[in-house]
Design a protein around this nucleic acid. Structure first.
Lengths: 247, 247
DNA sequence: GGGACCGTTCGGCGCGGCCCGAACCGTGCC
DNA sequence: GGCACGGTTCGGGCCGCGCCGAACGGTCCC
């Protein structure tokens, strides 16, 4: 009531996400990449002029940052904290009752349910399996809150992911992120992002269409080797009916 | 773009906070207590009918829960996760340019800057000092993410705060919460809430007006004793000019 | 230079949200 | 029972916001 009872600041900020089009932009940008204004306009189904206006407001509000390049206006989420905020809100928002979809979309859905990026870290069934394996192997420990162990630091180092530079970022090292499809946590934070990037560098994973990710045979063997993950569990979706995609 | 590109759900949810009156309600309720509809209406400066409408929407949206008692409608934040969400948003929202205030408000501001509750845990200078002391004494450790140590569990147990029951809640044990006035983290999460409650039970702190909290002489001695905190640092604001209140 | 394309600005339209006052209902108190 | 009080419902007014199309400027390519 006294310190910051004035709701105008909060309301103005929340209003940025209170429009279906702007919210859709932010959800699309959750893939961590930079989109052009036109791409976003087409994805949202609005005129270019409308999208331009929305982007200006989102940038002014600090949710997005832009980068002009030639005749393109690239835009992406301002920082990981914004991604987390959008996710937290989306996780609490009711699903807008869009049960199935077309066959093609359903098939893409199973691929996404298997492995995808969530802003800048791994999500989907693969992300959850990884999270569980890291806990089982003692890389992570959650007896007193999720934390990276000393053994975990060494393990990451052997993998080629030095932890020290990550401490310099103001971002938490490790963080839970609730998985949309699995409804269980996967690993986010600076370590989650570094791990996701390292897997791509090592060729253990490759990017698919959109935010989908595929595990390569080399990746499957490597994960089985370094984390003791059962290769059978790591099998990619064999066909479109490999487990229902709970969207 | 594919899994949840539909921004309607997120937008509808964010819209709950996108109104100055509703946002003000939620900020007021951040003190963790239940308010009546009339109290909120007066605090926000709107008609009772307007407040009633807003409350209905906030309850329907899951942000608030209500409890009818006689002719009163008590309402409070639905759970700690909502409190965190509101705080995260408020922390990112720009301050609505309300530099000083009346003298009386400024004086109340210094009391709040010294010690207050933040939903259900301690905040303000006292909260930050406590947080730092817990780190220094090894109750908390943040070498791999903020975590409660084994020694911390024992320390809490000696204080009369058994940790095991706290694990049963789906709430994280320990969590950072950015302090509005100090701009540094204080301790939130299940342990932060339990600690705040235990201090009140022990008479180390007492509630002041609003969300303000005062440290009792017994509390000052006890904190100095059990945590090695310098009693001089713990001194309450002697007068209104004890350090600027950065609101 | 010509043309295609990306993005922005401007006017104008229409819907929806926010607010209030008045009337009404239920509770609690005298 | 009478009255005060808290809360709700309803109708109506108003402002703001989101959307589009058209016109314009900039950039890149041929």
């Amino acid at each position: 009531m006294t310190i910051g009872a004035d709701g105008r600041g909060l309301a103005g900020f929340a209003a940025l996400l209170a429009d279906p089009t702007r919210a859709g932009f932010c959800l699309a940008l959750l893939d961590g990449r930079a989109w052009t204004a036109g791409e976003l306009a087409r994805a949202a189904g609005v005129a270019a002029s409308t999208a331009s206006d929305h982007l200006t407001r989102l940038v002014a509000g600090g949710l997005l940052v832009e980068q002009r390049q030639g005749r393109h206006r690239y835009v992406r989420l301002a920082d990981p904290a914004v991604a987390q905020l959008v996710e937290d809100l989306a996780a609490r928002a009711p699903a807008p009752a869009t049960p199935p979809r077309t066959l093609r979309a359903a098939s893409a859905g199973t691929a996404l349910a298997y492995a995808r990026t969530c802003y800048d870290h791994l999500a989907g069934r693969l992300g959850v399996l990884l999270h569980d394996a890291l806990l089982a192997r003692g890389v992570l420990d959650r007896s007193g809150g999720l934390a990276l162990t000393g053994a975990g630091v060494a393990w990451l180092d052997r993998l080629g992911v030095p932890v020290e530079p990550l401490r310099a970022t103001r971002r938490p090292l490790v963080r839970d992120c609730l998985d949309w499809t699995e409804r269980r946590p996967h690993l986010a934070g600076a370590v989650g992002a570094a791990l996701c990037g390292r897997f791509l560098d090592l060729g253990w994973t490759v990017r698919g269409t959109g935010r989908a990710v595929r595990l390569t045979p080399a990746g499957r063997d490597a994960l089985a080797d370094t984390l003791g993950l059962d290769p059978a569990l790591l099998a990619p979706p064999a066909s479109r009916d490999t487990g229902p995609a709970r969207a």
